[in-house]
Design a protein around this nucleic acid. Structure first.
Lengths: 395, 395
DNA sequence: CGTTGTTAGTAAGGTACCGTAACTAACGGC
DNA sequence: GCCGTTAGTTACGGTACCTTACTAACAACG
């Protein structure tokens, strides 16, 4: 490591510690940050001064707690930077702008049957929403734009390889977005919506390790180790949807047999119960419970999930499972069934209980996650947002 | 990060880069290390000087390659430090001493039916071997002692919780070893033998990501991501032995049904074929081939492995599988069967071929891995081995 | 056989960053 | 009003690294 990088490293560490502390509603001072980061007070003071000058950190009014000189509470600056999340879903396009503090500056949703429209149309709409969000937020500098798409995305150039729910194949999404004046000159990245949803969950559970399962039209998932999303060789580690839970079992959309997704996804459950395709995902379980015993429905879903989870826990040796999407509202119902199945199959049980928890259920996790991902570059390299800006040395 | 740590970080980076480079038999100079670590030549020179003074790095005779001033080749020092690996296996106790360069300084094996003897006896023998190895190596400073045990180990105090193949339960291994004069004052750690075996494989594949499967009395395994061993919540991530491959299938030693280990471990295969318990692990497949068609044996093993591997690949999104233990010699035979099974079940296939490779098959991987693990602290904190030694600041 | 070009390594000085020690600021409690 | 306590600043010094420029040692070429 070069000594220039030391400064950037410490700036980043301080900003990250500050952001983490301010989500806990504990006011944080320079002295507090010094303890958290194990740097000395003068060092923190000097670095904080630069962050304040660069409008990345805000000072509050002095605040007295107990004896001693009152602290000057610090928070990530509000409204000075804009991180933009976009979401292109089957029935809507949405855009969310947040600042460093994670506060929503602007939010726009337009309903659009994307499958019925052309990709161009959806992308035009998305760009338009970006323009509106930027304007409403007061047109501060934009950090980055991250687009959530329900499909597979080429890691190199942000092409959408396939997005079945949108009827998209080979759409050069990022390139097309960059053609629009509202996004000219910005950094734009595309990511799978499920993977971005996890970021929202990671925010709620900083530093934890868990398996994330999201029930949606398909089954998405992810593996989080110590607060870091596992990627894998192609970026789809933790996609539990196509874990085989019954060799030679039900036919899956992917062409194989016995995948988890062939049993507990919205599509699979709806079709097997003969429900119409106007059934909303959030109403799925209630609708199923009308066609047969609710306990039976929960049992089917729970046992299928449990089997997939058991295998994952065996391989990963983790203890926490977070259920999201349409699985979140029924997490408490599922818990005993899943737990029983997991305990029958998983070795890790011997080490203690497996926790099966519901996602904190914030709305629009993919959209929030996208905006959150757009923020990331500021935290990992605040130096780039300060006047000096050596950050990327010429080579 | 504090500025004192910068030096340690860079010392460590240089030593690690040097060690990595010298395994590739490419002679490396100060200038070469400067390029590898992205530090400048003067910085590398100064740090290397300290490492040479501390006997951690050796200079060779100047070596001319092409034009320009000849380089001074550098290598990790040989014979100046001793890292000790111990192995306690069912039928022997072994001790290996290596230096920074990974060269074997001394090696001792004593055959002992550990199950027939007391734990005390085995531990006494181990300590004795350590004494002999230290003496033969010329009694240089000992870095650390790492003990490989085929069982589960308490992470905090190195107690062996259970080691079925040794008939051990609750043996305070590390504490007892420290009682012996040969190990007085040393740092001693215990680790599962399979997990240490992986370290030997990681050495051969620096920076790679792969799944490791080791056929032995049981089935051990591990997950390696970018050259780092995944641990999990309790340190047994990647223990594929108890992945369920057939719900409600064959009864396993662990009390559950359908585990991988109940099909392809030495014990399971031997017993199902009615072979005597004097069959050696390395002869297992040949012996099985006498009782029935060899293709059938390979097919059984391959399909079972393939199913477990497919699930793991789906979850982890990796592309390489390394077979070790008794599986290594038959890796080429297994490959088509495993590949076919994996391709039928694994999603990741769509991204390209899955590589099923054999371990490089060094003898005694667990013992080597233990010695290698004992070396680790030098590489991660060379500062502690240099006169200055601030390393662990008082708190 | 000297000249030129190339690469390895060293020397000297400067700079950036952080840490230490001591100080001021601002409060509560007695 | 004094004292103890905590927040934050100032001044200074040390450490580590970088830049620039140099020397060392070789190959290739005419």
């Amino acid at each position: 490591m070069q000594s220039t990088h030391l400064r950037e490293h410490n700036l980043s560490a301080i900003l990250i510690a500050l952001a983490a502390a301010s989500t806990t509603s504990t006011p944080t001072s320079r002295a507090g940050l010094a303890k958290l980061t194990r740097l000395t007070k003068p060092t923190v003071s000097k670095l904080i001064e630069e962050l304040v000058d660069a409008d990345l950190v805000e000072e509050g009014a002095p605040l007295s707690i107990g004896a001693g000189r009152p602290m000057v509470p610090l928070t990530p600056a509000r409204g000075t930077l804009l991180a933009i999340g976009l979401e292109i879903a089957a029935d809507h396009v949405a855009c969310l702008g947040i600042d460093l503090a994670g506060r929503v500056l602007s939010h726009r949703v337009e309903y659009l049957k994307v499958t019925a429209a052309s990709a161009e149309e959806a992308i035009d709409l998305a760009a338009e929403l970006v323009g509106e969000v930027r304007a409403e937020a007061g047109d501060p500098p934009v950090v980055e734009v991250v687009v959530a798409v329900p499909g597979r995305i080429a890691p190199d150039d942000g092409r959408v390889l396939s997005a079945p729910n949108l009827d998209w194949t080979e759409v050069p999404l990022v390139r097309r977005l960059l053609d629009h004046p509202q996004l000219a000159g910005l950094t734009v990245r595309a990511q799978n919506d499920n993977r971005l949803s996890v970021l929202t969950e990671i925010d709620q559970r900083p530093g934890e390790s868990f398996i994330y399962l999201r029930g949606s039209t398909g089954i998405g998932g992810a593996v989080v180790i110590d607060g870091a999303l596992m990627t894998g060789a192609h970026g789809w580690a933790g996609e539990f949807g196509h874990t085989v839970i019954e060799p030679g079992g039900a036919l899956c959309r992917c062409g194989r047999r016995g995948c988890l997704e062939a049993y507990v996804s919205y599509h699979a459950l709806r079709e097997r119960a003969g429900l119409g395709d106007d059934t909303l995902i959030e109403d799925l379980v209630d609708a199923l419970a009308l066609t047969r015993d609710r306990a039976e429905v929960i049992g089917l879903i729970g046992r299928s999930l449990g089997f997939a989870i058991a295998n994952a826990l065996n391989i990963l040796d983790l203890t926490t499972v977070v259920l999201s999407g349409y699985l979140a509202p029924i997490a408490e119902e599922l818990e005993p069934v899943v737990r029983e199945t997991v305990e029958r199959h998983a070795l890790a049980i011997e080490a203690g209980p497996v926790l099966i928890e519901r996602s904190d259920g914030l709305t629009d996790p993919a959209l929030r996650g996208a905006a959150r991902a757009a923020l990331q570059s500021v935290f990992s390299d605040p130096g780039a947002w300060i006047g000096r800006e050596p950050s990327i040395p010429a080579r």
